[in-house]
Amino acid sequence: MAGQLPSNDDSAAFAPARVWLMLPTWALIGFFLLLPVLLMLVYSFLTKEFRGGVIWEFSLESYDRFFLDRGLFGDEPPKIEWTYIGIFWRSAWQAGLATLLCLLVGFPTAWFIATRPPQTRSIWLFLVTIPYWVNLLIRTVSMKFLIRDNGPVNELLMALGVLDAPFTMINTNFAVQLGLFYSYLPFMVLPIYAAVERYNFALTEAAADLYATRWVTLWLIVIPVVRPGIIAGSILVFVPSLGAFLAPDLLGGAKNWMIGSLIEDQFKGAAGNWPFGAAVAMVLLSVVLVVLFIYARSQTRAGAR
């Protein structure tokens, strides 16, 4: 990764000033992100006040509510509460499926682009990069416009006689999935492209020389060698998909919540339960950090080899 050069005397020209150079970064990210995250952790153990806000009293209420069901009046023996775990499960499932679909479409695309001659390659790459830079909100709104009941897709299918009545896509799990897949597809293509571009095609030739067919070569040689790019792309799709808010909110409607919707509802929506929102956010952050930790471990092990 950028920034982790083995240091030596050659690269120590700014050593005397390094504390001053790093200070703004430490101060800003430390004070406005690290500290807030820690504060959020504290909040998740506080007591809820009636409208937004908290009372500074320690409480396990939020986590209790998340994981355990004690009945309507809180006096029944605790059972596992499935509502919120279910939302997490659906989010993970949606994010996983989106990652898989992105991989399925993104890998061939990345390979195709990376194997074009240099002049046309930059044009293809440019075409994939543009949506990557376009506002996610606008992209999601565009998708909503496209797939709504009397939107262009349904109009087209009815004009072609494929459908008699509009096929409802909006406000379904399918729409959320499509939204995630569409939103994060460029995040998959670009890292795989970078890996394929560095791929040594002599390996493919060597495999062919040793009687491997193209598809066997793809499976046994190419995919293992470009795996770091595939994993990086998968993480770049999975992590933001897991915490997505726009796709479920705009395309999924009220019934197809994901974690992002649940958290937002605690702060901006009707629920107004800050400690509980903080607890849900903490659970999400933990899941993401575990995924990233496993990734980092596999990277260092690959690096050590």
Binding site: M22, T25, L35, P36, P240, E264, W274, L284, V288
Partner: peptide
């Protein structure tokens, strides 16, 4: 390496979590 992690922290924390934490702060 801690500094490196700190620089990349905003990339690692999901956006919605950053949003919530900043609001609380």
């Amino acid at each position: 390496s801690a500094s490196f992690a700190l620089i990349n922290l905003p990339l690692m924390v999901p956006e919605i979590v950053t949003a919530v934490a900043t609001l609380i702060f």
